[in-house]
Amino acid sequence: MGLAKRIIPCLDVDAGRVVKGVQFVDIRDAGDPVEVAKRYNEQGADEITFLDITASHEGRETTVHIVEKIASEVFIPLTVGGGIREVEDIRRMLNAGADKVGINTAAIHRPDFVQQAADRFGSQCIVVAIDAKRVNAEGDSDRWEIFTHGGRKPTGIDALEWAERMVNYGAGEILLTSMDRDGTKDGFDLKLTSAISELVSVPVIASGGVGNLQHLVDGVVDGLADAVLAASIFHFGEYSILEAKRYMAERGVEVRLD
């Protein structure tokens, strides 16, 4: 038996509530983050990712308390992303009980922040989140670029080059979201995922587009992802984590089933 592929439910949290935007626009309320995290933990989630999409400063204080509460009740790894811009932000989240932090926009503005963070806290707790969008014309060779602002703003940075650079700077893991697929329920961008997973030495988490359980299998088998992340299929009770794992196990994917 080898290393299990990880199933990671993601909680997008805005001002203390779990929400899920369809392409970051249509937001639906999905409950209290502590209750949601506990439910996923009981269902056998391998990790939990918590993305703070709160804009306000007061909202961020709420986030620290929620992370503390989750970490004192849920004994699986917890990643916190959103608004991580300074070493101090990382320290606060780790002290609150997070095991890893996700760095996204700050890495684009200051790539050496990733280096600084990895040197200080160790690569094992630095996840670089990459939001990528296909930019080649149909028929041309594949090319993806990094986008910010929920997929609206291009940066001109090639996604593959960026992933490699972030790993060289000390990222211990890549959280890769296809902005073309996020919220669509059409499945992961498998070409993007496999291209990056083959390129980098660290684990890659596939994200964006999961609409059914076969998509999770595809992410691992064809996308070569080490872990798969999904939000809405779990939040609204369509599937439980356990159902997802059983489905994957039946199709030959190694998962943790206790």
């Binding site: 080898g2 299990a4 990880r6 684990p203 070569l224 080490d226 872990a227």
Partner: peptide
């Protein structure tokens, strides 16, 4: 090591991160 493979030749990532027996 840098280029790890399992017995089937699949790439193994480093760090070893996740749930193992």
């Amino acid at each position: 090591g840098d280029d790890l493979r399992d017995e089937l030749g699949h790439r193994l990532k480093v760090p070893h991160m996740g749930w193992s027996c």
